[in-house]
């Protein structure tokens, strides 16, 4: 088991709880999509898993070396080239200088950006920047990769391509990926499992397995998407008065 959440709760100060009784277990090498509307505490949950915040209650088990993180914004440093950004991550991990360069080249090749390695972020398109961010996240060499709506700001064509790309990289690198999204179609396309979080407080209320056969069959995938969407809407409707 790679990540185990038991009755996890989080509240800030005296406010209403953001997360309440979150239970989930995510296997090593699994690709899990975390789906939820606004206010479900997705980002808080990821921060807790990444060790950036402490839960108020409950227990969690994560790999000792922590997790790599990828944000909605590529958040590349504009004064560094694509390679420089990846190299900085390696440097902060304590990788030696000679190895840094080789490893950064390797990682940029993995995301098919070998030729753009010497470009600066402002010379790259949004999709290319996210791929550099992915290479940077992978450079941390951690078993778990947390992704917080990484493709939400991209155009449809690019996002579509990056879905294929991420699937390929996941297969090649054997990472455990927890992918937060509020796009049902994206969740079904990427995840082996989709977990639905309720909003205010956040809690895992439903879960679906997405077998390869379903992904492969457009009709089955559409049916599952509709099913999940209905459940998500029901959850949202609960908040209207």
């Amino acid at each position: 088991m790679s990540v185990l959440l038991e009755n996890l709760g989080k509240r800030f100060g005296d406010g209403a709880p953001v997360l309440d009784g979150v239970n989930a277990s995510i296997g090593a090498g699994e690709f899990v999509a975390l789906l939820g509307a606004s206010g479900c505490g997705k980002s808080t949950l990821l921060n807790i898993i990444a060790g950036l915040e402490r839960p108020s209650s409950g227990a969690l088990e994560v790999p000792a070396d922590g997790a790599a993180f990828m944000f909605q914004d590529a958040a590349l440093y504009p004064w560094l080239t694509a390679r420089g950004n990846v190299e900085l991550a390696l440097k902060l991990r304590g990788v030696g200088k000679a190895e840094r360069r080789a490893r950064a080249t390797e990682l940029l090749d993995l995301v098919h950006l070998g030729e753009a390695a010497d470009k600066r972020p402002h010379e790259l398109s949004g999709g290319m920047r996210q791929r550099v961010a992915l290479a940077r996240a992978l450079s941390q060499d951690r078993e778990v990769l947390l992704m917080d709506e990484p493709f939400a700001a991209l155009d449809a064509i690019t996002r579509d391509l990056l879905h294929d790309e991420l699937t390929r990289i996941w297969r090649e690198t054997n990472r455990t990926i927890i992918f937060v999204t509020h796009n049902v179609r994206e969740a079904v396309r990427l995840g082996q499992r989709v977990l639905l979080l309720s909003s205010r407080p956040g809690r895992v209320v439903s879960e679906w397995a997405v077998p390869g056969a379903v992904k492969d069959d457009a009709a089955a995938a559409a049916a599952l998407t509709a099913d999940i969407t209905a459940r998500l809407r029901e959850e949202i409707r609960r908040h209207g008065k």
Binding site: G27, G29, E30, H112, A116, S125, G127, M128, I157, T158, L161, D164, E165, T167, R168, W170, R171, E172, N174, Q192, P211, G212, K215
Partner: peptide
């Protein structure tokens, strides 16, 4: 797309295909 079948997934041509597609979009 099942666990355990990771590495065997993509064939070489498909990776090439994806790379070409990406290069065009880039």
């Amino acid at each position: 797309l099942e666990p355990g079948a990771h590495a065997a997934g993509t064939t070489r041509t498909e990776t090439e295909d994806l790379r070409a597609l990406e290069a065009g979009l880039d």
